[in-house]
């Protein structure tokens, strides 16, 4: 592999853009295919298929074997709320190799002392999220209970391709949230994307247990389709 190709792969990954490395098994010729180049590539069908599954693998075309190294953007969780639950999520997300970004404009909550070693943004969610760019490899989680903070985040998430959207709160709280989002112009299908009550039903009580149930649900949403893939 040429160092230039390796560097390009790392750069695409850092920019959260999917890319596929094509290696001819016989001879070892290689090319890196970025999303805007897929359509014109001779292996477009195979590349598209592997990318959709998020799986690297061997493919064959015209009697020649190729290995496709699929590099999908790193899964990331964006949370509104520098609260107990998100504190517990920090070490758990690290072990699960999920990037975590915490947004909370309340600087009394969002302190580096409470949240060391994690990306912490103290802007309002609409500003912070515009900078982050929500994509299909991002999960959005609203944890503040405060509509002023959670709602702008939820609205941005519902307008994006986020693979997971979840919001903390009782059924009553969520009922009021649904009313607000409906008034803001979101239809039933869009609002149904929100996981509420949030998290897997494991009877979670403590903040750490709730963090576990949310992360469990996110991992299940992220990995579930792989189980069904051939």
């Amino acid at each position: 592999m040429d160092l230039a190709i390796l560097a390009a792969m790392n750069a695409e990954r850092a920019a959260r853009r999917p890319a596929v490395l094509v290696t001819a098994i016989e001879g070892g010729a290689q090319r890196l295919v970025t999303t805007d180049e897929i359509e014109a590539d001779p292996l477009a069908t195979q590349i598209d298929r592997q990318l959709r599954m998020g799986k690297s693998g061997l493919v064959e075309a015209g009697g020649v074997q190729y290995f496709l190294t699929v590099q999908a953007p790193h899964p990331r969780i964006v949370v509104t709320g520098a609260v107990h639950i998100s504190q517990a999520m920090v070490p758990m997300a690290r072990l699960l190799d999920l990037d975590l970004v915490i947004i909370d404009p309340r600087t009394a909550f969002a302190t580096p002392e409470r949240f060391p070693d994690v990306t912490l943004l103290t802007e309002w969610p609409d500003v912070a999220l515009a900078g982050l760019g929500l994509d299909a490899y991002t999960a959005f989680v609203a944890l503040t209970h405060d509509p002023k903070i959670d709602d702008p985040g939820l609205e941005a998430a519902l307008r994006s391709e986020c693979f997971y959207v979840g919001a903390l709160g009782s059924r009553k709280t969520h009922g009021r949230r649904v009313e607000r989002l409906t008034a803001a112009g979101f239809d039933q299908a869009a609002i149904a994307r929100i996981h509420a009550p949030i998290g897997l039903d494991i009877g979670a009580v403590s903040p750490a247990e709730i963090a576990l149930s949310i992360l469990g649900e996110i991992v299940s949403t992220l990995r579930g389709p792989r189980r069904l893939a051939p």
Partner: peptide
């Protein structure tokens, strides 16, 4: 050198890629 798992059969411990 870079080593990559390109194919697995049975209960291989690490996935392709």
């Amino acid at each position: 050198a870079l080593a990559t798992v390109v194919e697995t059969w049975g209960s291989a411990p690490r996935p392709v890629g």
